[in-house]
Structures are given as structure tokens and as C-alpha cells.
């Protein structure tokens, strides 16, 4: 199922409800649902944050078959490859830690596969997660 969402963090509740309905109907286990919601939010928020001059909606498609597949697509966006390894020192002390940078790190650790495609301003991220069915 596919739906377009306005490019705003105000879309997050509707985005959650859209995905949750599909995951629930697909009997996806709780742990996988949590990971899918987290990766989906982080990717969506990144698209909103790093392309502030782009006005178009963000297309989101969620399917459940033998695994959950989520695709986010935006147009007129700058290239931002979320698959580039994000190094976060999770052993750093409190004094050394700075807020930020965890989003992409979590995406890369919580998804089973993560793919990025960019062509002519079309930016697309596809991730999968085992559904646990």
C-alpha cells in the first residue's frame, strides 16, 4: 500500500497509523513493528530536515509478504546516501557525547537490508525487516 505524506514532522502520527495498520494486518511481531516504525520515522525526518527547500510530498509504500518492505521516495531532493556507514562511538563518555547522529546509525542497525537509489533528483530509500511471522 502506498500513500503520499506532507513534508512535515506533523505527518508523523498519520505515518505511524498508516504503517501500523498494514503491519497489524500482516501479523508482524511487535519487535519488528517497533524497528520498522523507528527506521521509517528516522528516514522520513531526515528527508524533511535535509531538503527544506523541496515542497513535494514524500511517497511511502509499506508491504508485508515474507518480510516487511518499506520504500520512501522524494523528488527534487539533494543526494543523501543513508547506507554510507555511520560511525557513532557508543562507548563515548557522557562528556564526549553530543546530541545528533544517532538516527542513521539506528536505521543501519535495526534494518535487515538498506538500499539507496538516486537519479535526476529522485531520492529513494528501501529497507526490509523480517516480519517474524
Amino acid at each position: 500500500m502506498k500513500r503520499a505524506f506532507a513534508r512535515s514532522n506533523d505527518s508523523l502520527t498519520a505515518l505511524y497509523e498508516f504503517a501500523e495498520d498494514i503491519l497489524e494486518a500482516g501479523d508482524v511481531v511487535d519487535a519488528a513493528r517497533f524497528a520498522v516504525h523507528l527506521a521509517l520515522e528516522e528516514l522520513f525526518v531526515n528527508m524533511v530536515k535535509y531538503n527544506p527547500d523541496t515542497k513535494g510530498d514524500i511517497d511511502v509504500e509499506v508491504t508485508v509478504e515474507d518480510k516487511v518492505t518499506v520504500t520512501l521516495t522524494e523528488y527534487g531532493a539533494a543526494e543523501f546516501d543513508v547506507t554510507v556507514p555511520k560511525n557513532v562511538d557508543t562507548n563515548a563518555s557522557l562528556e564526549e557525547r553530543t546530541p545528533g547522529g544517532l538516527g542513521v546509525y539506528l536505521i543501519q542497525n535495526l534494518t535487515d537490508s538498506l538500499d539507496y537509489q538516486y537519479s535526476d533528483g529522485r531520492s529513494r530509500v528501501i529497507f526490509t525487516k523480517e516480519s517474524g511471522i
Partner: peptide, 19 residues
């Protein structure tokens, strides 16, 4: 029920300030 990196940032910022 749920927290994302944005929420983690709030916790970290507050912990650093309190420390």
C-alpha cells in the same frame, strides 16, 4: 511505548546539563 533518536537527543542533552 516508543522513542526515536529525537527523544534520545532530549535525554542526552538533559543528562549532560544535569551532570
Amino acid at each position: 511505548e516508543y522513542i526515536s533518536s529525537a527523544g534520545l537527543g532530549i535525554l542526552l542533552k538533559t543528562q549532560k546539563r544535569l551532570a
